[in-house]
Structure formats: structure tokens, C-alpha cells
């Protein structure tokens, strides 16, 4: 008496198909994520280097991100702010000429947001800046980044972990951060 292996495995056929479909969906999802999401370090319209500005020249973060200490958003500087210096400084560099083009055509630079929180999160920069949390705690060592990269996961676990560590008042209440 012989047993056909093919017949014996036949019972597992639906399970095998289900696993196959799940695997294919997983891979498709991963590919879609890689293709359609900008990743942690997207290419910006201008190759602005924080190494030069924040690193070499030690310009304070809040010289450009002026709202950080008094508003919920830190603020991306206006083109006017850039032109304040770059009318005279390094005007021959190709990246600065891109900036000048934006200035002359009176257009805002379409920066790509790297640290993008979900809409249901209330994150006031001012509370954190006034509590003397260094910008680098969340944004990484920005002064060494030629292109801004997101180093923090920006997950709820990561937020609450820090709140618990620093024993923030009401730091674990849902409505402190959610809206």
C-alpha cells in the first residue's frame, strides 16, 4: 500500500494559498510604502545644509525657526529671511541661485515636511522649548545633517516614554496630546 504525497498534502492547499496571498500582500505593501512615501530623508527643492548654518556658523535654531518658543509650530523661515543674508553672501553658488529664482518669482520654497505629525496630535513647540528640551532631543543632531533626516520614530510610545521619564504634569492624559 502506498500513500501519495501529493494527495496527503492536498488538505493543506487552502492554507498554503492563504499564506501565499498574505506574503504577496506583505511584499506589495512594502514596495508601495517604499515607492509612495518620501522616507525619512526626502530630497528637498534646495539642498539646504544645516551643517553650514547650524554647524559651522553656529546660527541659533530660533534665528530662523522664529515661532518655536511662542507658538505651536516652529515655523519655516520666509524666503525673505534667507535673502536677508544671501543677497550678498555666496550669490554665485547654484543652490543660492535657485533661492534667488524663488525670490524673484515671488514664490515660497516648497519644502517637504520631514517631521510630519498626524492631524489628531496637538504638539506645541513652545511647551517643549520653554521646558528646555533641546531641539536635538527630537530632531537629532541637526547641525551635522547635510540633508534633514527624521531620526525619531514620532510614535505615541516614544512621546509618552519621554513624558513619563520627565514626569510631565498630566503627561499621560490622552487629551494632553490628542485632539
Amino acid at each position: 500500500m502506498s500513500v501519495s504525497v501529493r494527495e496527503a498534502l492536498g488538505a493543506f492547499k487552502p492554507a498554503a494559498i492563504a499564506v501565499g496571498i498574505a506574503l504577496a500582500a506583505y511584499i506589495a505593501g512594502w514596495v508601495a510604502y517604499e515607492v509612495f512615501f518620501p522616507g525619512t530623508a526626502p530630497v528637498q527643492p534646495i539642498e539646504f545644509s544645516h551643517v553650514i548654518h547650524a554647524g559651522d556658523y553656529q546660527i541659533d535654531c530660533q534665528y530662523c525657526h522664529i515661532y518655536a518658543a511662542r507658538s505651536t509650530t516652529a515655523g519655516v523661515p520666509a524666503v525673505e529671511k534667507c535673502m536677508g543674508c544671501h543677497k550678498v553672501i555666496a550669490t554665485d553658488k547654484p543652490e543660492i541661485q535657485k533661492l534667488t529664482d524663488y525670490w524673484n518669482s515671488r514664490q515660497a520654497i516648497p519644502w517637504i515636511k520631514v517631521h510630519d505629525l498626524a492631524d489628531f496630535v496637538y504638539f506645541p513647540h513652545k511647551r517643549h522649548v520653554q521646558a528646555e528640551v533641546a531641539c536635538q532631543t527630537c530632531h537629532g543632531e541637526v547641525q551635522t545633517m547635510a540633508r534633514i533626516e527624521r531620526v525619531a520614530p514620532l510614535s505615541m510610545k516614544w512621546c509618552v516614554g519621554c513624558h513619563e521619564e520627565r514626569e510631565v504634569e498630566n503627561g499621560r492624559d490622552c487629551w494632553t496630546c490628542h485632539k
Binding site: F120, N170, D173, C174, W175, H178
Partner: peptide, 13 residues
């Protein structure tokens, strides 16, 4: 749930 403000709150998430 009730939060520390005595509010009956609803978390949508």
C-alpha cells in the same frame, strides 16, 4: 474616561 480636569472625555483614536 474622566481626566484630571473633571471632564468626561472621548478619545476618537
Amino acid at each position: 474616561y474622566h481626566n484630571q480636569d473633571g471632564l468626561n472625555t472621548q478619545i476618537y483614536n
